[in-house]
Amino acid sequence: MSCEYCKDKLEAYVLGLLEEESKTRVAEHISTCAACRAKMVLHQRAALLLDRAFQEKPAASLRQKTLRRLDGEKKHGTSWLLWGAPALAGAAALIIMIMLSPWETVQLARKRPAASRVHWQAVLHTQAQEAPAYSIRESGSGGGQGQAALVLAQDADTGPARPRAEAKRRALLMQTPMDELDMELTNPINDRSIYEDLGVATEVAKLLL
């Protein structure tokens, strides 16, 4: 057994990390080698310092304080459920309303049959493109062909309308067959500006009731 063997094992020996065989060999060596024993004692003292210097007990009130905090958070969680659930339901309803297409929202306001849906989409799209020109037309009860009468046409055009939007508006005014409108005016619902005009459209819808 040499000092070289023990050199890297003394910390592990002190910390109780050695396997039985190594532990025995180190113990045998330090019993005969004063230099290694002195090193081992230093490691032992360091370990003792690390152990003893932090041997403090927390204040007795700390546990109670923590329990009160836990209890408070538990109650807070419960009270949140009490007011939070209805608020959450309200928020969900609002989100659903926002997620609905403008047509569906208008439809809710007007309680109209779904037959005129395509037409209303077209109208809203036109509004979005060139407000404040409103071109409102209702489809017949059967939907399909554009045989509907012009219910309201309020043109208060204050600026140059975009050509495409103008074409759509004219198509509406000229009682273009509804199926064609449907094809022409696809994707109006994703137009963000429609949402901005939703309030106007809803107001117009009220006139039709």
């Binding site: 910390e11 592990a12 002190v14 910390l15 990390l17 230093l42 490691h43 360091a46 370990a47 690390l50």
Partner: peptide, 13 residues
């Protein structure tokens, strides 16, 4: 973990 503990003790010393 054993190596880290031994080095930690040495480092402290």
């Amino acid at each position: 973990a054993k190596v880290r503990l031994c080095r930690g003790l040495k480092s402290f010393e």
